[in-house]
């Protein structure tokens, strides 16, 4: 896991660089002698850079017992779930909220959890109905209208 911690440290160092650059050049540290809107972010950027360097420095070398980021095939389910959720977000405005919910639950149960088509479709339809009842009818949330609802 040490190498992954080092990658995290490098990412954090880059993030700190962006924060420092924005605070120093785009925002102002001081405005007419008074603390400006860039002062606190600048300080935070510097602290983050120092902490990132410490993180990298304390994770040099190799692990005594190497630990993989993912166990074999452990990435499949989270990644599949994430892809389905991205599909939901993409469909949300065009297809409508309730249809997207039905698609999300059906795909999730069928692809991620390997449930049967009938169980997946039934559960998805029931979830869509509950979301419609709770959010649209009871809480009056103005969902985007889509193709079906």
């Amino acid at each position: 896991m040490k190498s992954w911690q080092r990658y995290a440290g490098v990412f954090l160092l880059a993030l700190a660089g962006v924060v420092i650059q924005q605070s120093f050049w785009v925002l102002r540290l001081f405005d007419h002698g008074q603390p400006g809107s860039g002062l606190m972010p600048f300080g935070l950027g510097v602290i983050l850079a120092v902490l990132a360097v410490i993180l990298i420095a304390t994770n040099l070398g190799t692990d005594a017992a190497p630990e993989p980021f993912w166990e074999p095939k452990a990435w499949v389910r989270p990644l599949l779930a994430l892809a389905i959720t991205v599909l939901f977000a993409w469909l949300f405005d065009d297809v409508g909220a309730i249809t997207s919910v039905v698609v999300l639950v059906a795909c999730w149960l069928f692809l991620v959890e390997r449930k049967g088509a009938l169980v997946s479709a039934g559960t998805a339809a029931a979830t869509g109905l509950v979301v419609w009842l709770v959010f649209e009818r009871f809480l009056q949330t103005p969902f985007p209208r889509g193709l079906l609802f």
Binding site: D93, V101, L104, L109, V112, F135, T141, F143
Partner: peptide, 21 residues
Amino acid sequence: FMAPMIMVLTLVGVYSVNNSA
């Protein structure tokens, strides 16, 4: 069954705060 339900609640819930996709 619980995981997709929680995900739906999260997604729909966050939309309903500002009605923003």
